[in-house]
């Protein structure tokens, strides 16, 4: 099954992480969520929070200043 997508372009802290967590609540353990953000502080926020939860993470820089984070819920 493909990852669920969440578009966070233009969103700033703390809303990016709040919305990510909200989406993560909706998916089951083992499923993936891909978030796209252009706010570097949000990248750090999301990575740190997911890491604390023990979620799997994969990050790619899609272009200048746009990041795609794939989170695997545990």
């Amino acid at each position: 099954m493909g990852a669920k997508k969440l578009d966070l372009l233009g969103e700033v802290c703390p809303f990016s992480l709040l919305k990510t967590r909200q989406e993560l609540e909706k998916i089951k353990p083992g499923e993936k969520l891909t978030v796209e953000t252009d706010f570097n502080q949000s990248v750090r926020n999301i990575l740190k929070w997911c890491d604390n939860q023990g979620y799997g993470l994969d990050i790619a820089e899609k272009g200048s200043g746009v990041w795609q984070i794939t989170i695997t819920k545990k």
């Binding site: 802290c13 703390p14 992480l17 709040l18 570097n40 502080q41 750090r44 926020n45 740190k48 929070w49």
Partner: peptide, 19 residues
Amino acid sequence: SGICFSAICRDPFLFNDFS
């Protein structure tokens, strides 16, 4: 450093993040 002064007062309440 990515320091964010708004995060000092916000993140402890929202995310329990005190870093």
